[in-house]
Design a protein around this nucleic acid. Structure first.
Lengths: 334, 334
DNA sequence: CTGAAAGCGCTTACAG
DNA sequence: CTGAAAGCGCTTACAG
């Protein structure tokens, strides 16, 4: 029922080889012939069978997206961007939620069984040295994270710069007792943000103070953030300002402050990252760095497409622009 | 490089037809032969090429998921469930965010071009009478919504019952001035919840009071909910209890109440639906009906699989269990 | 510039 | 129960 190359060939009065050439924009076709074929394609509503093409070319048009948890807003936004471009290019998406060591296993299996042609990884660990090896068999692009020294294609914000700007902003507001609530630093975003943050503080002569710092394993879990913030803000020598790895953590800090009778921003400034839309549910609104997740997803898919089609890639590491959105949770030091 | 039927056939000393039969669990193979083939498959790590199989059988292993916005938590949770089962069955997912009239167009194009074998729709309108027509060419399953009278496969909670139980719960707390904040009733979940709610109130002699009701077009938009709740709760004759279509709306109501100095639950009870994890960021915690979205996604994928493989389907309409999670935002009437 | 033919990896009547 | 052969829809050397 669905038109095939044969139908188009008959309609246009040419061979199927010619139809194929036209469909693939081969230059070795005369303009007149190409025109006739195109007319036939149009008339019959012909759409090439991607599966047959893949089979013949020994390719796959599937892309694996390694997404730890699609219900996390930042990942979902990134996925939306990836999917948008995938549809445009005609790729099909496979989703897998492997994390940690499991990732390497899944990716190797995918490469072996040719289930997909490439993959976009939304979270990797700093020490994932197996990435280049897998990358040699299966095109990989990192999105949101970056692993230095292993020359992988990646799209991310400049997390170190975010950290620096966070410190800079709080310093300019006159703060000196500046704390940090973050996650374990096993991925680049957490590591870099903290490094940039601390290095900027250090430039103003402020050295890390363990009493002002709190960590949680789960950087996007509100309850964990709440627990940690409660502990930190209950101390008599609590900070006057806190930079948080994520808005979820920042919202927890704002809520805890309210419960402890600490006025935000008068007595405590809270700064987050992500510009999470749910932050509009917590008062005072959290000042935060926005990240263009949808755009990052689109760029990652573009990069992967370029790589898989053997095109030259301008820059291996794409930096997306972040932006400080000043809201209500930050203010001058007492 | 990847092993094919030929490799397995040679290894096992049989023909490729036999290998294929074993892989497809055909009964017309002797136990001994099957065993030999399985051993060869194991040894070579053979995995059938799905594309070739699809091509030969003139099938597709792609499933379209019509998901309006993957960044909405309930949709993302449903998608996670769908994806889990899809991986298990070996299906590949296609995502499309068409809504309203656009859906029919997209689905018809998918059916025509055989891009997919079936689709799961996460939101449809009450009046979508084109569904059975499309369903005759492309297997469809509805998830979260239900369209009466058109005999579509669907998985959803019993929204009417949720509405009834909401009213029942508030009545038992002694409330009489009971309001509703909902979305336009163009989809079954909104329509049914309101119907069930109003009918239960009616049984206790309480008739709809327009002064206690507010609507928003965007049922999952916090700002809209905030605006509407503000308007409703600012009235001198405001309700003493409100049932909200979603937790997002309920959270907005709780926040507005706080701002207006209305104590929750002492002066106002707020009841929501979804048991949204973000609700833990708003105090007092919202009493809510939970929906098993992941499970609903899995069931929808199962149903679709049964349908596409021509198996008998026990029930065309699957009802998932909701559950009232009593938290802090509801209490006895004054 | 164009066509005939082989072949991608599989399934399935058709014989036996 | 098993195998030889055709064919799913396409692409691509190879000739011409």
């Amino acid at each position: 029922m669905m038109a095939t190359v044969f139908d188009v060939a008959k309609e246009a009065g040419v061979s199927i080889a010619t139809v194929s050439r036209v469909m693939n924009n081969s230059p070795r076709v005369s303009a007149a012939t190409a025109e006739a074929v195109r007319a036939a394609v149009e008339k019959l509503g012909y759409v090439p069978n991607q599966q047959a093409r893949n089979l013949r070319k020994n390719e796959s048009n599937s892309i694996l997206v390694m997404i730890p948890d699609v219900t996390k807003l930042s990942y979902a936004r990134t996925l939306a961007g990836i999917n948008e471009k995938a549809l445009e290019y005609g790729y099909t998406l496979l989703m897998n939620n492997a994390v940690g060591e499991e990732q390497e296993i899944v990716l190797n299996r995918m490469a072996e069984t040719q289930r997909c042609a490439g993959a976009i990884l939304l979270n990797v660990m700093l020490g994932d040295e197996w990435l280049p090896d897998v990358d040699s068999r299966l095109s990989l692009v990192l999105c949101s994270e970056y692993v230095s020294g292993c020359n992988m294609l990646s799209v991310s914000v400049d997390d170190r710069k975010i950290g620096r700007e966070a410190a800079d902003y709080l310093l300019k507001l006159g703060h000196r007792r500046i704390g940090y609530i973050g996650s374990c630093v096993s991925c680049s975003s957490a590591f870099e943000r903290r490094e940039g943050f601390l290095s900027r503080l250090s430039e103003d002569g402020i050295e890390p103070d363990v009493r002002l710092v709190a960590y949680t394993d789960v950087s996007t879990n509100y309850r964990e953030g709440y627990r940690v913030a409660r502990e930190l803000l209950s101390r008599p020598d609590r900070p006057g300002a806190i930079f948080c790895y994520s808005d979820i953590l920042a919202m927890a800090a704002v809520t805890v402050a309210g419960e402890l009778g600490i006025r935000v921003p008068e007595q405590l400034s809270v700064l987050g990252v992500d510009n999470n839309v749910y932050a509009e549910m917590v008062h005072p609104y959290v000042t935060s760095f926005s990240q263009p997740f949808e755009e990052m997803g689109r760029r990652a898919m573009e990069l992967l497409h370029l790589k898989m089609t053997g095109q030259t890639i301008p820059t291996g590491r794409v930096i997306a622009e972040h932006e400080l959105k000043i809201q209500e949770s930050t203010g001058p030091a007492l």
